[in-house]
Design a protein around this nucleic acid. Structure first.
Ligand SMILES: [Zn+2]
Ligand SMILES: [Zn+2]
Ligand SMILES: [Zn+2]
Ligand SMILES: [Zn+2]
Lengths: 129, 129
DNA sequence: CCTGCTATTGATAATCATTCTCAGCACGTG
DNA sequence: CACGTGCTGAGAATGATTATCAATAGCAGG
């Protein structure tokens, strides 16, 4: 018997999918409490971790904290992220995948994985100066 | 009057350059104390931060902590890192640089930057199975 | 070689995100 | 509906990093 369904897990999943870009566990917890949910902080951390492991969310580390985002399940992709407002665009690039794999192989490394993120200022944030 | 020269900063620079791969501030501090240096922990953190800002060291976040490595100054490059022993190989890939820049531009993002790291198991660590 | 100004240092406390603990609760099966 | 076990959450614990702040030590001038 593994992974029971609880309203807490669904609440986290929903809150995550209504976010535009990447959010931290802390801010997601804050948003949930704001909206009246009595969910606990530890539970938010556990739910996000589970979503990431299960492939329903992507995560990245920024300034010492983990950020999460609901992503199209089952597809490997990367992100273009506005470093001001967090707006995120999913990116697919087979060329980069192939490059990463060949770089590892060329140096005798096995079980390759990679971290690829592109940051910038989105059009909207540029206008705000 | 900025950035005075102290033996502490040099000690950190030296310790970093004698390390094979990426190391944490904590472990570098430990190594320095092991070798008899009376340097303080806060100073190690400050020195590493300065080196990274000055372009003499690269850093990456792994499992919630910052890792540092002495790198060839002034040259933009990425890393292939053994996730077991930390062995690191510097890699240059103009194709990836161009890809990152064009992806940002295509979506109207300016001031692009990127994080690209490849991980794997090095030949030596594979044998240890 | 002295002097003064000020950046730097380091022991310690303070932050902050994340994880652990564990008693009480609730999902899902029968 | 009853039971067994996974799940929850308040609070403590952990661990990395940063802030404090008095004492120290580069370094430019004289
Ligand atoms: Zn933006
Ligand atoms: Zn990829
Ligand atoms: Zn290795
Ligand atoms: Zn690059």
């Amino acid at each position: 018997m593994t992974k029971r369904a609880t309203w807490q897990r669904e609440a986290v999943r929903d809150a995550l999918s209504t976010s535009e870009g990447f959010v931290s566990a802390q801010s997601l917890y804050g948003a949930l409490r704001e909206s009246g949910s009595p969910i606990g902080l530890a539970t938010v951390y556990r739910a996000l971790s589970d979503l990431a492991v299960g492939g329903d969310a992507d995560s990245l580390q920024q300034e010492g904290e983990s950020l999460y985002r609901a992503c199209t399940p089952g597809s490997h992709h990367h992100h273009l992220i506005c470093r001001n407002c967090g707006l995120t665009v999913e990116i697919e690039a087979d060329a980069v995948e192939a490059w990463a794999a060949s770089v590892a192989a060329d140096h005798g490394f096995t079980q390759p994985s990679h971290v690829v993120d592109v940051f910038g200022l989105c059009a909207a944030c540029q206008r705000l100066g």
